[in-house]
Simulated scan of single mutants.
Amino acid sequence: MISIRTICLLTVIFSFTQLAIGVELTFELLDNAKDCFYEDIKLNTTVTLEFQVVTGGAYDVDVILLAPDNEVLYKLTKAQFDSHTFTTTKSGVHAVCFSNEFSTFSHKLVYMDLQVGEETPLPGLGEHVTALTQMESSALEIHKSINSIADYQTHHRLREAQSRKRAEELNERVFVWSLLETIAILSVTLGQVLIVKNLFSDKRPSQLNKL
């Protein structure tokens, strides 16, 4: 007899193997550069594009989504993050392009998630003609919860990476400012010592007449 723990483990495995077809990646977008990603999508397919600039510059990029005939389906200028869902009206290769051409010195780290089509249902639950049993309902709820947890973990990792980068930049600026202050204090102190030394080392006019 299969235990409840084994059923839960199988549900976890199925939840990760039955995801919708798509692309999820984090890539580096160089300064004054443009990167495009292509996906062959069928007609009347639901597509969701989500992106976020993790690090670099002002955390912004230009985004454009093109249909197979180069029709602009979605476009943003200097955006930090967004999510866009649409249904395809043409079959063919769609393009998602990220541009950093407006930046001449700072490169960006960009996260992109492109989900194509609806999520595949759990085995045995796709065309269920009768009422779900308690075990099937529990498996379905666990499956939805795991998907939500995976999404939350992804966004938390992105926020963590963004916060870490900002903290490193702030730490670097504080270090440079502290170093400049230290150099300034040492320079002022050395200058004062030299001035006082020169005052006491100069001979008085009376001493020069005696010589």
Rank of each mutant, 00 (worst) to 15 (best):
K34T: 13
G57F: 03
V96R: 03
Y59P: 02
A131R: 00
G117T: 09
I195F: 09
K78I: 04
T104C: 05
L30R: 12
F16A: 06
F16V: 13
L73F: 08
A161R: 15
D60R: 00
L194C: 08
G22T: 03
S148P: 04
I195N: 06
A20P: 05
Q207C: 08
E181W: 13
L199P: 02
L29C: 13
L170G: 06
R204F: 14
S15R: 00
N209G: 05
N32G: 04
V116K: 12
H155V: 01
R159M: 09
S201K: 11
N171G: 05
S137I: 05
T48N: 05
R5F: 14
E118R: 07
S103G: 01
K42T: 10
S15D: 04
H107G: 08
Q162S: 14
Y111T: 02
P68E: 01
Q162H: 14
N147Q: 09
L211H: 09
P68D: 00
Q207Y: 15
F175C: 10
K203R: 12
A150H: 07
Q52K: 01
V188S: 06
K78M: 07
G191V: 03
S91A: 15
R204W: 11
Y59E: 00
E28S: 10
L65D: 03
V93K: 11
K42M: 08
Q134F: 15
E168S: 05
L122T: 10
D202R: 10
Q134T: 12
P123S: 11
K90P: 07
V47L: 02
K197A: 04
Q18S: 13
Q207S: 15
T55C: 03
G57Q: 02
S138G: 04
L179V: 06
G57I: 01
P68R: 00
L73R: 07
L186M: 12
E136I: 06
Q192T: 09
T11M: 02
Y111L: 04
A67I: 03
I183A: 11
A33F: 07
T130I: 06
S83D: 08
C97M: 11
K197Q: 05
G191N: 08
G124A: 04
G22K: 00
E141R: 11
H128E: 06
L199E: 04
A131N: 01
N171I: 02
T46S: 12
L49G: 03
V72D: 08
N198L: 04
E136Q: 15
L65R: 01
V47Q: 01
F14Q: 02
V23F: 12
R5E: 14
